[in-house]
């Protein structure tokens, strides 16, 4: 029977908290870049210009079908060789997960936009709105409400996938956990604490999205009643 002893782990809690902070940084930046990029890719894919549409489809499919670990290694090791840029683990991580998640967000955006009744486009068109204005004023505000559950799901997935960045020596929560485990010889305790930290991080995030969904539902139509 294992004798649980959290003393060593808790003594080095600052290491884990630093890791948590680094994880949050990559996550937030990947969202901040990934969501707008995803919208751009979705609009590109739905464009009536065949070249643009095919290009965006290709980018989306490419990043959805290749493993994130391969993408991360590619950005971290291959990109500096191909175009002589300095690549830090942090930049490679943000770059990888921005683009990787944008491919998924693009499909969520596309699904959300397509789910809006054709009549909404027609009504906007009939009062003289351009396609751009219709999208911005009429379609997207409705689509975004419907997208929130899928968006939250995908973001949680993203947060969990960021554990991969420990493999390029970025000091995220997982990386710090590995370090601490080998330092304290208490892997069970360390990974238990780390699991609890991920649990609370994601719990807080998902509560925020539920709150957001609830708030939006109050104004007119929403996914929650």
């Amino acid at each position: 029977m294992h004798e649980w002893d959290f003393a060593a782990t808790l003594a080095d809690m600052d290491l884990l908290l630093l890791g948590l902070w680094n994880t949050i940084q990559v996550f937030v930046l990947a969202l901040a870049f990934g969501v707008p990029l995803g919208l751009g890719l979705a609009l590109g894919r739905m464009s009536r210009t065949p070249v643009l549409s095919q290009l965006c489809s290709f980018v989306i499919e490419f990043f959805r079908t290749t493993p994130p670990l391969v993408q991360l290694f590619w950005f971290f090791f291959a990109l500096p060789i191909l175009i002589s840029v300095q690549m830090t683990p942090f930049v490679a991580s943000v770059l990888t997960f921005s683009i990787q998640s944008s491919a998924f967000f693009a499909e969520i955006f596309r699904g959300g936009i397509n789910s809006i009744d054709k009549g909404q486009w027609e009504a906007a068109k009939a009062i003289g709105m351009t396609r751009k204005a219709s999208l911005r004023r009429i379609i997207l505000p409705q689509a975004v409400k419907r997208m929130i559950p899928a968006f939250a799901e995908r973001s949680i997935e993203l947060l969990k996938t960021t554990t991969l960045i420990s493999t390029v020596s970025y000091a995220d929560l997982m990386f710090q956990a590995n370090e601490l485990a080998s330092k304290t010889f208490r892997p069970l305790e360390v990974y238990t604490v780390v699991a609890v930290m991920y649990f609370f991080l994601i719990l807080v995030f998902s509560q925020i999205t539920i709150l957001l969904e609830y708030r939006l539902a109050k104004s007119g139509e929403g996914t929650m009643r």
Binding site: D117, G119, E122, A123, I138, P141, Q142, S219, G220, E221
Partner: peptide, 10 residues
């Protein structure tokens, strides 16, 4: 229109 097409979020 037949189906009104009011903007439900407004």
């Amino acid at each position: 229109f037949q189906h009104f097409n009011l903007f439900p979020h407004k």
